[in-house]
């Protein structure tokens, strides 16, 4: 394969799919609810820590449920701060994020990292279904793709229900929601709990995938997820919901591919944050740049004809 081997693409897709869950979580809080929730970093580590501890105890599947439950709690606290106590949404996220650092340490027994070698994970369980070489290479990716398919379908279904429509309306027109018997505080709470559970699910999966959990795992996660989200929304625009959901996951995979390419080009790891920032900036600027180029083109042809 040369420049990009199947292995590199596979790894990029695997990580891209896991990060895609975080991007979907931001899709709900940022795009649908129009709330800037910055508790993502802490919530991601929380999911990883809770998932890791339960997995070490020998229950990888239960670990996923516990992690998602922890994510719901995190989302609930963020929502409670902003809907009941009047804390600004950005501030609420930062406060929860800061508090979660200590909680995450406590979950991991006050050590800054734990490893889960020697016990089963959802990936090893799924991988043991077949002995073939193909399965050994691709089972992780297939499992992740199945999870993303399930989550994506669930989000699509959920946003079409009466509850989902109410949540969308809350993010779209607060005045309308107030006039139509929907409790916006409750909708924000449900939305952020759902969003938190997805972030924590991603954290739990990455923990089981790498068989380790580190207290600084989540640092910068919100930027990465936002980058994926913006790339996805740039690709698909504000069209129909299923297209947007697919776009977000696609954006996340694309982002990881770009990072892989940067790796192959021997970009030093110290420069990675800058590369990430550049990708976000380019993705956000793309639609505007397209307009500028179009306008410039018109200007030039106008000069030529006159």
């Amino acid at each position: 394969m040369g420049f990009l081997t199947a292995g590199i693409i596979r790894t990029a897709l695997e990580v891209g799919l896991i990060y895609g869950l975080v991007a979907l979580s931001l899709f709900i809080s940022f795009s649908i609810l129009d709330i800037c929730d910055l508790s993502t970093d802490g919530c991601y580590t929380l999911g990883c820590a809770v998932g890791a501890m339960v997995t070490i105890a020998g229950h990888p599947l239960l670990g996923i449920l516990c992690a998602m439950g922890a994510g719901v709690c995190s989302g609930f606290v963020t929502a409670f701060l902003q809907t009941r106590l009047g804390v600004q949404s950005i501030l609420a996220g930062i406060i929860v994020n800061t508090g979660l650092y200590t909680i995450n340490l406590a979950v991991m027994g006050f050590s800054s990292n734990v490893s889960i070698f020697g016990t089963d994970t959802v990936f090893s369980l799924f991988g043991s279904l077949s002995e073939s070489d193909f399965w050994k290479d691709w089972s992780d990716l297939i499992l992740l793709a199945l999870i993303l398919l399930a989550v994506g379908t669930f989000i699509y279904w959920f946003l079409g229900t009466r509850l989902g429509l109410s949540i969308r309306a809350t993010g779209d027109s607060l005045a309308m929601v107030r006039a139509s018997s929907i409790n916006p505080a409750l909708m924000i709470t449900i939305g952020l709990c759902f969003s938190g559970s997805l972030t924590a699910l991603a954290g739990c999966l990455v923990g089981q995938f790498n068989k380790t959990c580190d207290i600084n795992l989540g640092t910068g996660m919100v930027t990465i997820a936002l980058a994926s989200l913006v790339i996805g929304e740039t690709l698909t625009g504000r069209g129909r919901i299923p297209v947007r959901i697919a776009g977000v996951v696609l954006g996340s995979c694309l982002y990881r591919l770009i990072i892989s390419i940067a790796l192959r080009l021997n970009v030093p790891t110290e420069a990675f944050k800058l590369v990430s920032a550049l990708i976000v900036a380019v993705a956000i600027a793309a639609p505007e740049a397209r307009k500028l180029i179009a306008a410039r083109g018109r200007q030039l042809s106008h000069k030529r004809t006159s």
Binding site: R162, L165, S166, R168, A169, D172, S173, A175, M176, V177, A179, S180, S181, I182, R238
Partner: peptide, 23 residues
Amino acid sequence: LMGTAPHMTIEENLAVAYLRASG
């Protein structure tokens, strides 16, 4: 512009308003 949600369809807007009846 205040009484409706611009990014939702006509049908979805009506469904949200109709929630009152289907409580």
